[in-house]
């Protein structure tokens, strides 16, 4: 086993009826890198993510995390392995406060989940950690508002905060800037870069914003119709003829994604 590889997919495949959404995809994600997956709408990026974290059961193939087969691991075990996953469609607890959203994320990996007779505030550590995370993602001021009342961009940040809270080794981010107003996108990008640099987390990123992808990634995988079209460093991808022709040949790239 290559010690540098943290997460690996082996001929991962998903069929929805006749549609092959993910077609035998094998990729390796190296430790402490930012690895991006790009591709046109419907290329299978989200489905691929769902296979990695067992949100969708694969038709065939395996997922290996740190040398261990995690293909059909129950959902709640994923976080315990140190993997945090955000979703393309914001996935938070809408009627709980922003602080409580993050505090629960801090509580999840602790040892006091079944203390029925203690008040949750008795466990100070969770709240302190939650406060730190809120500062990190810049939501301290909104701590006591219900999560659903946050503007969309802040909800994206909140979700990022929730997966950062337990200090995972690896982040899987599905279009973290999706639906964000153009002027707040750079904040998100800086946040991701900063997280990567300060705590050396491995980041697997699906993103449509080409500017972001090119500037931030160590490695890029291009998907098209469920399969891997190309893989390489940003400059290799930019120079790649197949990708260029796919890109220019109008395969439906959302070129520079801002509002959408």
């Amino acid at each position: 086993m290559d010690n540098n590889v943290i997460l690996e997919s082996e001929r991962l495949r998903k069929e929805f009826g006749a549609l092959v959404a993910v077609n035998d995809v094998s990729i390796k994600i190296r430790r402490n890198t930012i690895h991006s997956i790009i591709g046109p709408n419907g290329a299978g990026k989200t489905t691929f993510f769902n296979l990695l974290t067992n949100n969708v059961e694969p038709t065939a193939g395996r997922v290996i995390y740190k040398g261990r087969d995690i293909t059909r691991l129950p959902l709640h075990r994923i976080a315990h392995l140190g993997i945090g996953r955000s979703f393309q469609i914001t996935n938070i607890f809408p009627n709980l406060t922003v602080l409580e959203n993050v505090r629960l994320a801090c509580q999840s990996l602790g040892k006091h989940n079944f203390r029925l007779f203690n008040h949750y505030q008795h466990f100070r550590g969770d709240e302190e950690r939650a406060g730190q995370v809120l500062r990190q993602v810049g939501l301290t001021e909104r701590a006591l508002t219900p999560a659903r009342t946050l503007p969309h961009g802040d909800q994206r940040k909140l979700e990022l905060g929730m997966i950062l809270a337990p200090d995972p080794e690896m982040l899987l981010l599905d279009e973290p800037t999706a639906g964000m107003a153009a002027e707040v996108v750079p904040e998100m990008i800086d946040l991701i870069r900063q997280i990567h640099q300060t705590s050396h987390k491995t980041v697997l990123l699906v993103e449509h914003n080409m500017g972001l992808v090119m500037s931030i990634s160590d490695c890029i995988t291009v998907m098209h119709q469920g399969a891997v079209l190309a893989e390489g460093t940003p400059s290799e991808i930019a120079a790649n003829k197949t990708v260029q022709s796919a890109y220019l040949g109008g395969l439906g790239w959302r070129v520079v994604d801002s509002g959408q």
């Binding site: 976080a79 996935n91 629960l104 999840s108 007779f117």
Partner: peptide
């Protein structure tokens, strides 16, 4: 007391969004 205990807070989270609760690591 129960709804304010760590266990009870997770119960509220399950009502809000069970999938997210699972993805955070709660069985």
């Amino acid at each position: 007391r129960f709804v304010d205990s760590p266990t009870g807070r997770v119960c509220s989270a399950i009502r809000e969004n069970e999938h997210r609760a699972q993805m955070l690591g709660f069985n």
